[in-house]
Design a protein around this nucleic acid. Sequence first.
DNA 1: CCCTTTTCACCTAGGTGGTAAGAT
DNA 2: ATCTTACCACCTAGGTGAAAAGGG
Lengths: 234, 234
Amino acid sequence: WAGEGLGASGKNRHVCHAAARLEMGSLWEEFNRLGTEMIVTKAGRWELEQPGGLQRWEGTPFPPPSLCRRMFPTFQVKLSGLDPLADYVLLMDFIPLDDKRYRYAFHSSSWLAAGRAEPAAPGRVHFHPDSPAKGAQWMRQIVSFDKLKLTNNLLDDNGHIILNSMHRYQPRFHVVFVDPRRDSERFAHQNFKSFSFPETQFMAVTAYQNHRITQLKIASNPFAKGFRDGDPEP
Amino acid sequence: WAGEGLGASGKNRHVCHAAARLEMGSLWEEFNRLGTEMIVTKAGRWELEQPGGLQRWEGTPFPPPSLCRRMFPTFQVKLSGLDPLADYVLLMDFIPLDDKRYRYAFHSSSWLAAGRAEPAAPGRVHFHPDSPAKGAQWMRQIVSFDKLKLTNNLLDDNGHIILNSMHRYQPRFHVVFVDPRRDSERFAHQNFKSFSFPETQFMAVTAYQNHRITQLKIASNPFAKGFRDGDPEP
DNA sequence: CCCTTTTCACCTAGGTGGTAAGAT
DNA sequence: ATCTTACCACCTAGGTGAAAAGGG
């Protein structure tokens, strides 16, 4: 027990001191003040396999690019307090913030509850693609979940995160110690630590509702530079 | 010994049946008949950190993109004979084919030996970025080393493969079983299997010498499509 | 009416060889 | 004379929101 002692929190010593600082916090807060919205789309491979879509990649053994959307801002954290020599898996999931469905009232520029939530989508998880890796490598630089994609396709076959449009979600971030012990399943509840940043909560939408969100996305996302007008900002 | 028995080759049972089939073999052979050339360049981060280069990425914590070159054709293999449930690391290195330096004689369109080889560059290794992974995942689809980049910069700091221009090289591919035993170092020599495909040998150059190589690169590399003239080929 | 899907122009990011200038 | 570099136009690949079209 000495070698795998528990911290005061009841967590394994490899995770009990783990800390995560959200990067781009001021940008997240700026979005959060307006009410962050994230686009969700379908168009996984199931859509593209219809006639007319297939020809774009026939002859290659690889699936077509998924047209699902990333998050913006990107969820990025700076980690500390890990054991540099231990292995960790990093992952994210998304939990409903309530059991409501929403609609946007343009006249008042606000979100209104509009009935109960639809049946929850399959609760998927996104592993950071560098997992597993040593604590030292995770702490060396910012960990970015820029490969994470959102979809509203319940039949999605690409492992993307499935969300219901017009529902609110809270991203969660988990640090999981890869326990080398034979019976590590017995300690699974001690071997992870989770982080939730309230400023990263958002509404899933298929098209932006709040025009101020649209303008902030255009102003801050490099890929939307084509929609900026006039003054260049440093 | 029964659990980690050795095959007839003296190799660990997890690698002794491993087999690798080179993909795009006919394209490699077409290049090899002409005498394959691969471009090597400098321009790692050391070059870009000179005044005038830095401003392109100031403000980001990430290094600038390396301008070093990929190989074309890309080295790709289809694996079989691995233990689906065991972990493997896949990697490549490059060994000099001889101790000569070459020059290209345009009048005869041929390579001539021109003295002894220069001091060998640091013998680097390129790990496939998905390493380590289970045998099942490696065998599921073609393994592609398209991230591998070549440089002639002896001071390269990006982990790229360092080669001498005007020298001949043979790419090698290694399958390494990740041995879970505590004293696995003692068995290192049994835990890997190596593959060399003669049709992938090449001359490192800083600019193409043989015009027929240039034309074949333009004809077959999608990124060089801008230099193709006239007839579209399926 | 409200929400979703499709298509588009425009961008980021980066992989090509050509070309001319530079280095040795 | 030979090799190397820097810059360029042109491509692949894919991430943007706008706008129009589609669906219940």
